[in-house]
Computed example of a mutant assay.
Amino acid sequence: MTKVLLGLLSVIMTLSAGEIYATFTVAPEQKAMLAFDASGITDRVNYDVSDSVKKGQVLASLNNRDFRASLEMAKTALKFAKKDYERQLKVQNLIDAGKFDTYAFKYENAKNEVAYAQAKYNKTFLRAPFNGVIYEKDIEIGDTVSGMMLKTVFKVQSKSKRKLILGFDQKYHQSVKVGQVFKYGVDGDSKIYEGVISKIYPFANSSNRKIKAEVKAKDFVVGLFGEGYIQIPDAK
């Protein structure tokens, strides 16, 4: 922690019983490690590191001509199964119930086959799970992907929404509450910030005897370190 930051913190903190010291690291509010759940050859990679993405956008795709052909075949089978079923439905009272059930079964099974083929086809596309930014990529056009050995090919995190992961001494577990104010500074930044505790983890780390808490923030670089004081208004 820089001398400048320590000096600024000392201005806003009196070291009274109503302030509890805590350190923190900056983490994204959301992050995800993405992998294909299918096998094939990568034929498109649409985004790179630092690119912003929106939920549902295709980040990369596999060569899927065989899956697409299977889907079209299933749709064709459904088309004719539906026609057969609708013809039999018109004369249902005139034919054997078992015969009618056969057509009904073929129709329902054809719908299931389409759903199955569609699901397999959809797996050839890797989509963004939320609005965010790509912070790591490990895939190129031509790479072989195996659904049996999942490999993370994209890492995505929220673009600006952050959370501070605080660590404070376990002896204050009864004093720290959700909603309390946290005044803090970030290493390398001369400004003093203020946030509110949004979550307290329900366990203490046995190795360092600290409890974690979270404070929502925005725009900080993920991985930065900082320190500050939790304000305890009712402390005596």
Rank of each mutant, 00 (worst) to 15 (best):
K161R: 13
V4Y: 09
T124F: 11
V176C: 00
K106R: 14
V133A: 10
V156G: 04
Y229V: 15
F100G: 01
V186D: 01
Q57W: 09
E29N: 12
K3I: 12
Q170V: 10
L224D: 10
R68V: 08
L78T: 06
I197Y: 02
T144V: 13
F105H: 11
F80E: 10
A213E: 02
Q118V: 04
K177Y: 05
V11W: 05
K161I: 08
K123T: 05
Q30M: 12
F182T: 02
Y103E: 07
S52T: 14
F100C: 00
A74K: 08
A35P: 01
E227S: 13
L164W: 02
F125V: 04
M1W: 08
Y116E: 11
D84T: 12
F24N: 01
A69F: 12
A17H: 09
I41M: 12
R127T: 15
A35R: 07
M1D: 07
I139A: 08
N205P: 03
A74W: 10
E108L: 13
K218R: 13
K151H: 12
N205D: 15
N46Y: 06
T25H: 07
Q157P: 02
D234K: 14
K99Q: 14
Q174W: 10
V45Y: 06
V222I: 15
A128N: 07
K151G: 04
A38Y: 09
R68M: 12
D219Y: 11
T152R: 09
Y116D: 08
D187A: 13
N131I: 07
K31T: 09
G223W: 01
L89C: 02
S206Q: 12
V176L: 00
D51N: 15
A235I: 07
L166M: 03
P233A: 12
I12E: 12
F125E: 13
A110V: 04
T152V: 15
F168D: 01
M148G: 05
G132I: 01
